[in-house]
Amino acid sequence: MSARFAAGDRVRVRKAYPPGHVRTPYYVRGKEGVVSRLIAEHPNPEERAYGRDGLPPIAVYGVLFRQNELWPDYQGPEGDTTEVDIQEHWLGPLKDDGG
């Protein structure tokens, strides 16, 4: 499988709240970020957590979020960020209209 995103791509995290084992923290769901790096392709931990093999492997990216995007009331400077490792199936491209 080939990675769908590259460093520099703007992405939006899927806004979904499944009740099982997931690796995408609640606070980034639905948020916009920028891919900082392709980390690797790994068997999907969300499958492996239930005893399955998690294949095919899935790409994991470092995604950089501006703190102001994550927390509209963020008190610190404009430039502060949080980077989170996110699997490809949690990411969608960001359209020009911001959607």
């Binding site: 980390i39 994991v60 989170v84 490792d85």
Partner: peptide, 14 residues
């Protein structure tokens, strides 16, 4: 304030 604070939330494979 001029220095970016970057938090790394290590949720996955690293």
């Amino acid at each position: 304030d001029a220095v970016e604070v970057r938090v790394h939330d290590s949720t996955a494979e690293l």
